[in-house]
């Protein structure tokens, strides 16, 4: 009996220490991946020029990249050329969501750097961003034809991300 207890105790400590060891080598940065492989949430979001609403129906039948951006966000400028490149590709719709921004500034931003967005909407108070699990911009979400979320990009899109997206949609 005593022997069993001794073995159990030793094993508990061994287990704890090995978990500690494993954790040391893990990436501690948090990314919200809980939405990946889930269906795109229902949404109804007003277009940038207030003319109409966009819903899930507008992004059916095609790959869609939803991109949250703002003119006050410095990293958004960095990723912009990649968005421009992506806008050249076929069978990808880019839905831009202008996040907590002022309209004139947003317009200047697009006229300066170009407009890569097939659809452009705005999220004035940021509420829509929560539906998509956004916690800081820029963030982008790649959605397939069946409206499944297949990838999430936190932070500015990189060249690797570009290649990745191209590979997926082809």
């Amino acid at each position: 009996m005593q022997k069993i207890i001794k073995i159990i105790i030793s094993f508990i400590f061994l287990f704890v220490i090995s978990i500690f060891y494993i954790s040391l080598t893990r990436d501690t940065n948090y990314n919200t991946s809980s939405l990946i492989n889930k269906e795109t949430p229902e949404f109804k979001i007003i277009s940038f020029n207030d003319s109409n609403y966009y819903t899930r129906d507008d992004i059916k039948n095609n790959y869609t990249l939803i991109n949250f951006w703002a003119s006050w966000c410095a990293p958004c400028r960095i990723e912009h050329p990649i968005l421009m490149k992506l806008s050249q590709t076929k069978n990808l719709v880019i839905l831009g969501i202008n996040f907590k921004d002022k309209e004139p500034q947003a317009k200047t931003f697009l006229s300066e750097l170009g407009n890569p967005y097939d659809l452009l909407a705005k999220d004035k108070n940021g509420k829509h961003s929560v539906k998509f699990g956004i916690y800081g911009i820029p963030e982008s979400i790649l959605i397939n034809k069946e409206l499944m979320i297949i990838q999430k990009f936190v932070g500015p899109l990189s060249d690797d991300d570009y290649n990745n997206i191209i590979k997926i949609i082809e």
Partner: peptide, 20 residues
């Protein structure tokens, strides 16, 4: 930083298993 962690962890394991 993790290298610190490894050192302290070794130290800790020696302490624990020595005592046990």
């Amino acid at each position: 930083d993790p290298t610190r962690g490894i050192y302290i962890l070794i130290f800790l394991s020696l302490m624990i298993f020595g005592s046990i």
